[in-house]
Write a protein that binds this DNA or RNA. Sequence first.
DNA 1: CAGCAATACTTGACATCTCAAGTATCTCGC
DNA 2: GCGAGATACTTGAGATGTCAAGTATTGCTG
Lengths: 173, 173
Amino acid sequence: MPRDKAALKAFPAALDAETRVHDDHHVSLRLWLRLLSCTNQVEGRVRQNLQSSFNTTLPRFDLMAQLERAPQGLKMSELSQRMMVTGGNVTGITDSLEKEGLVIREVDSADRRVYRVKLTAEGERQFRRMAAEHERWVVDLLGVLSPRQKKQLLDLLGELKERLTGFNGERQP
Amino acid sequence: MPRDKAALKAFPAALDAETRVHDDHHVSLRLWLRLLSCTNQVEGRVRQNLQSSFNTTLPRFDLMAQLERAPQGLKMSELSQRMMVTGGNVTGITDSLEKEGLVIREVDSADRRVYRVKLTAEGERQFRRMAAEHERWVVDLLGVLSPRQKKQLLDLLGELKERLTGFNGERQP
DNA sequence: CAGCAATACTTGACATCTCAAGTATCTCGC
DNA sequence: GCGAGATACTTGAGATGTCAAGTATTGCTG
């Protein structure tokens, strides 16, 4: 099935090409599944905690978190970028938060196509309460790793993230 | 805006506990965000490819992948576990696949509450076509890392996954 | 300045997802 | 065997999510 036998890297040279490629594919697939699994675990727990403790959701928390770091407000498109989701999606979440008075859309006088979304005072108050708890959860969850391991993971994932950003589907020669 | 430019590099040992704790929190939060970001990147690309190449989705592919490894079929609850999603969710995806003849529900004569879900011949044929492509995508995407880096990541994530599984919210001393 | 492509959002159709409640079916203890 | 509780699945409501198409506004170009 794997029609691309191209050796990907410089290998010490003890293995035949067939085994090398197959082994590397295996590692890549396993790595992907494991990455997904870890993320799902953490995400699931955070989500459950947000639901049971604050009756809110991760995307809503995420949107508010973005705004908290931007007192001057953010455009919908900026929210979309930072949250790594579609514009249409941001519209929905913003609608919901605005309806509850946690967030407000302000028209930009310079460009009337734009909304500047800001946290309301109530939104800010509520976010701060949630943020403290959220940090505890994450720190506790990732506390299963040693500081040294966390650092290593952070670096490796940083590398991965960096390179994925510039990756556009070219095959390695 | 980024008020925390705090150097988060190699800190020898000259810091008070307060700073250390804060720094560790910072690392944990960053690690979590980075984990999420990497997963989203890969997942997004795989999802797009599945959509454009095969007009299908990741959950559907995932369900079929589970079945392909289990020729005797799987119970809905087993699918639910392996896919790490809710039972209600599996019902929907199975409905959709069954409607297209890629999958079939067989009643278990021993326990009539149970369905054994199996790939149809057509489902198997279609899955094999997709699986080959899917593997290429993942291998290419993760090919941005060296085999050594992949191995390291695999190990670290293995450790994380392992410990998260047994973690139930206790604070670290 | 007219026209048109680009930009910023919203909308609607669909596909996941979770959770809670509902329906069958089993199992076990008495 | 029978009835309570566990188990297996489905259903329906609500929140995300994508994509494509639609509306408003800008800004560029001739």
